[in-house]
Amino acid sequence: MTRSAIELPVTGEDRRIARLAALAIGLTLAEAAIPSPVPGVKPGLANIVVLLVLLQYGWRAAAWVSALRVLAGGLLLGTLFSPGFWLSAAGALTSLLVLGLARHLPGRHFGPVSVSVLAAFGHIGGQLALAGAWLLPAAALVKLAPLFAAAALVFGAVNGVIVARLLAAPATDRRQSAPCIPQ
């Protein structure tokens, strides 16, 4: 009997993305436990990780982390392929597109807070667009839109400040961004 083994080469970057995605998934799960007065208004803590990854490792890594976060978050919360999952995916997708554009803003004038707020607006914009096209009549969403936009502004700014502080912290405190050493 011949031993057959399929070798999937795992690079250091794969491990790093997996670890960061795990962190984002953990935050998604923790956030799902936070009660919210309005369905859909959430702090979006996992976006902190996505934004950090974007600023440190580029857009491709951020897209991987975000996609893995949405997929695994859906699996773990039991919402995979439910409407909530697709809303989450639409938000993550538009947010990534906005991130791709926003990171080209001149860094001298625009910090992580700008990028985070823009991404938060992109996130809620994508979700509202899908919900309006698919789930709810647009007229019903119009009444909720200001609430969602206000939440995006507040949570986007707060997350941006958190990212700015994490980036400004001494390197020894940033274990998540330390180079990955394969065992």
Binding site: H109, G111, S114, F121
Partner: peptide
């Protein structure tokens, strides 16, 4: 931590 452009983005938001 906040740069000039950040305030512009926040105000626009």
């Amino acid at each position: 931590m906040l740069r000039a452009g950040d305030f512009v983005v926040l105000a626009a938001g």
